[in-house]
Design a protein around this nucleic acid. Sequence first.
DNA 1: TTGAAAGCGATACCAC
DNA 2: GTGGTATCGCTTTCAA
Lengths: 340, 340
Amino acid sequence: MKAPRQSDVARVAGVSQSAVSRVVSGDIDRIPQETQERIRAAVKELGYVPNAAARNLRNKRNRLLGVHTFEAVFPHAREDFYFEFLLGIEERAEEIGYDLVLFTSTGTSDGRRRIYRDGTNRLNLADGTVLLGAATDREELARLWHDGYLFVHIGRREVPGAEIPCIIPDYVSAADRLVTSLAERGHRHFAYLRSGIEQEAYADRRAGYRNAVERLDLQDRSPGFRGEPELTEEWLDELASGPETAVVAENIGLAEHLRTGLAARGLSIPGDLSVAVLEGSGDEPGHRWDCLVIPRKEIGRIAIDALVARVENPDEEPVSQLVACDLVAGETVAAPRVKE
Amino acid sequence: MKAPRQSDVARVAGVSQSAVSRVVSGDIDRIPQETQERIRAAVKELGYVPNAAARNLRNKRNRLLGVHTFEAVFPHAREDFYFEFLLGIEERAEEIGYDLVLFTSTGTSDGRRRIYRDGTNRLNLADGTVLLGAATDREELARLWHDGYLFVHIGRREVPGAEIPCIIPDYVSAADRLVTSLAERGHRHFAYLRSGIEQEAYADRRAGYRNAVERLDLQDRSPGFRGEPELTEEWLDELASGPETAVVAENIGLAEHLRTGLAARGLSIPGDLSVAVLEGSGDEPGHRWDCLVIPRKEIGRIAIDALVARVENPDEEPVSQLVACDLVAGETVAAPRVKE
DNA sequence: TTGAAAGCGATACCAC
DNA sequence: GTGGTATCGCTTTCAA
């Protein structure tokens, strides 16, 4: 009842093992029909299936792509952070006939997942790996890169001394376009709501915002624009009486917080103040914010393609790719109200 | 920049390859501290990581468990059919240090996934596999079993001539208990709403229901009880004027349909008729049905444990396991109304 | 204590 | 056309 090998098939078919190998792996150019049939019959009879490990050892390929998340996948999968990425990853992997390994073995007690554990990097089980996660460990990323391991990271990550190939939502352009469209509706005085997170994704949003503000010669005297993350009561008071007509928030939490604060001051969105958000999927529960939408599923697909391109052609340069984000209109932006 | 092997480490450390192997795989009983240090230093210096394929070829083990779903995972993951199972599977795999392979490579154009494709069974990449899916292909299951492949199936599946090891929600007992509790509240005249699905899971519900009805000497003259799946207008009329006080539905869709039909006749749940459902999670959106809850996450965990037990001890008998379902109270069952 | 050597199963080169 | 045979990287037995 144990798995038959090629040599068993060869014996049954009365041919050599190499002949079996050829037929099984499709290299049948110069093997007569008749022999092929005999071999296939023996394969079927014995229920032979190739041993993946041996193949992999020989070929250095496994048609196996890794997915390493720095946190557990499924608990978060429902929220849209991971989910849509995985959808795209799975979909594309299936289309091109690759399997997926979820690296779950390296969980630590604190819920984080590491790549390297006691010197062993399980990732090399796969031909290449897609990395994703909010809590990316930069040291591991650097080490992986220095080891010459094949991977792409979803989301931009800068690591000194390493060129991490990333699939990057184009927040810079999206933020710029969002501000531009606000300006086109007549807004001149802006405020920026900044989260406390210091990460490439936020740096990109800030860069795009700043670009647009400077290019269009707009006004922004907000603490967020100066680099202070607090959404203070004092600033809300300022905002209520100041010249600002539009606010750009880095995320929905911030925007909701703002809404509450404004409501307490008798102000409404977008009647008194227009608000747009640099995050979203376009179908949040609750209010329909004007926001950008990160094409997560598409990014997942692109990540797989980028990876496979390099798996199948190791000479290919590892490069990062920008993916455009759409802007979607919601119900939180209007023309500027003329303040008395 | 290509991956160093043990022989490279050995050369650098000035020892033999076997010594490296021993240290790396933890078999260090009789290797002096000093040698170990030297070897570890060399490992670190070269950035050596063991080659998983070679290890697997040698060990016949990979610390890799497969997950094969007969449909794509992520599109369905949000709905609770797959999701909670995967949560448990991932959680448990992480705890015990196994990785997970998602078999996605075998997708066919119709969206179904096959195990065998042109004679090749990719599953043997993993040490063992958890199979799940509504659209289980029984032929493949049988073949897998005959091939001696190590797997468990979530949900009961009968295949003639094969003893599929399954992790089975105990619908028989749950349905019995549900009817019993209804009877304890005074219901004597029941009706059963049957879906059109013929599958083990439904057979089990029906068996449990029938057991209770017979044991408690209850009345049921419904078409569903006799084996007819239709929920017709005629039967709704019958129900409205008949002696029945309790209805058991196989799934929530059926129950909702019933609610609509009853409402059209001026009847309400549970005022006029009590309704309990043989399906659910206890937190459906919408109405809170009295129902059973399938402990999906726990089943996922148990599946992994059952699989790993056999992976790590191949002499272990493949057996199926029943997992108890809880009943949860909702707002759709009350004491029987006395009909005039 | 250490190392040489025999495989694990499949592939591909190179003779026949 | 076909079949030896070296090889992939690692583990483990057996001898030294």
